[in-house]
């Protein structure tokens, strides 16, 4: 019972801090189509896992991995192409 009472406060606290951080991030105004690959790489990978270093895989491997991530993370074609271009360039 005590745990349940604490849980309500925990959830309220989590959403309060989330709201604060959302307000901070609202300053960003770039539409996805205009963003460079480096930005898209940073924004999309980190939604689920740490962003990998471009040196982690070869250019050919990146093509397969980004196609895999396009399907898994429902990225658009434009985002995928820019991310793979960035990874190859920075590799």
């Amino acid at each position: 019972m005590k745990l349940k009472r604490i849980s309500k406060y925990t959830i309220v606290a989590i959403f309060f801090f989330a709201a604060l951080f959302v307000l901070e991030s609202c300053s960003s105004k770039n539409a996805s189509a205009a963003k460079p690959g480096a930005v898209l790489w940073g924004e999309n990978c980190i939604r689920c896992h740490n962003a990998p270093s471009p040196a982690a895989f070869s250019d050919e491997q990146w093509e397969t991995i980004t196609l895999h991530m396009r399907v898994r993370a429902s990225l658009t074609a434009n985002e995928t192409e820019k991310v793979v271009e960035f990874l190859k360039m920075a590799n």
């Binding site: 959302v22 991030s25 609202c26 960003s28 105004k29 770039n30 539409a31 996805s32 924004e43 999309n44 939604r47």
Partner: peptide, 8 residues
């Protein structure tokens, strides 16, 4: 909803 894709 956010332009930096930080929230889903």
């Amino acid at each position: 909803p956010l332009s930096n894709s930080s929230m889903e």
